[in-house]
Computed example of a mutant assay.
Amino acid sequence: LAARAAACLRAYQNVEVINGDGCRDIGEPADVIIVHAGFSHPHPLWLASLNPRGRLLVPLTQRDREGAALKITRKGKGFEAEAVQQIRIFP
């Protein structure tokens, strides 16, 4: 998935696709973080790694794998969250 994304985005010099464990290391602060797995809450590392006005898109799910995709934006010293769409995660 990361190789395909990198190939599709190669023309954009301001985009870098990183394949790794995003719960262990984000690298540099980011403008956008997109999570592709269901979680019960946003990982503290993701929130800490957002630049000012940076956005995190994360699917938040419950045990039944249903939930919502949330867009979380860093606003000053806090965050603003917005439900984008209802989702269901399949293993």
Rank of each mutant, 00 (worst) to 15 (best):
L1Y: 13
A2I: 09
A3Y: 10
A3S: 14
A3E: 15
R4Y: 12
A7M: 10
C8H: 15
L9K: 08
A11V: 06
A11E: 14
Y12P: 00
Y12F: 15
Y12T: 05
Q13G: 13
Q13E: 13
V15Q: 05
E16I: 07
E16Q: 15
V17L: 10
I18V: 15
N19F: 11
N19I: 06
G20A: 11
G22M: 03
R24C: 07
R24T: 06
D25V: 04
I26P: 00
G27F: 04
G27M: 06
A30E: 04
D31A: 12
V32N: 02
I33H: 00
I34M: 13
H36S: 11
A37V: 08
A37H: 09
S40T: 10
S40F: 07
H41G: 01
H43E: 02
H43F: 01
L45F: 03
A48M: 05
S49Q: 06
S49K: 03
N51V: 01
P52D: 14
R53G: 02
G54F: 02
G54W: 02
V58I: 15
V58W: 00
P59R: 04
L60I: 10
Q62W: 08
Q62G: 12
R63G: 13
R63P: 00
D64H: 06
E66T: 15
E66A: 15
A69T: 09
I72V: 15
T73H: 02
K77F: 03
K77Y: 04
K77I: 07
F79L: 10
F79S: 05
A81S: 15
Q86W: 07
I87T: 05
I87S: 03
R88V: 13
I89L: 12
F90C: 09
F90D: 12
P91G: 14
P91Y: 14
